[in-house]
Amino acid sequence: MKKVIIASLTAMFVLTGCNTFKGFGQDVSSAGDAVSDGAQSAQNKIQ
């Protein structure tokens, strides 16, 4: 019974961690898109 509980808790923490990293990746991607858009706007104004 202890093994089942430990396995369940481990799976819960692993899956929660994956969702956290997925959200972090999306945040970083959004920030990168904003920087790219800003750079493109600046380049368009120079030309």
Rank of each mutant, 00 (worst) to 15 (best):
F24G: 02
V4I: 04
D33I: 07
S29K: 12
D27A: 11
S8M: 11
K45I: 14
T20P: 00
A34D: 04
A31F: 09
G25W: 03
S30H: 11
T10K: 10
S8N: 06
K3S: 13
V28N: 03
G25L: 03
K22F: 09
N44T: 14
A7R: 13
A34M: 04
M1L: 15
N19D: 05
Q43W: 03
V35L: 12
S36C: 01
A42Q: 08
L15Y: 08
F13W: 02
G32Q: 13
M1I: 13
L9Q: 07
M1F: 14
T10I: 07
Q26C: 01
A31N: 10
L9T: 05
S8A: 15
G17E: 01
S29F: 05
M1G: 15
V28K: 14
K3A: 12
A39T: 06
K45Y: 13
I46N: 08
K2S: 14
Q26K: 13
K3E: 14
A7K: 12
I46Y: 13
M12L: 15
L9E: 09
K45E: 14
A11F: 01
D37P: 00
S8K: 09
K2M: 13
G23R: 06
S30P: 01
T10V: 08
S29N: 10
D37K: 15
T16D: 02
I6P: 00
K2Y: 09
G17D: 02
Q26R: 10
L15G: 08
A31W: 07
Q40L: 02
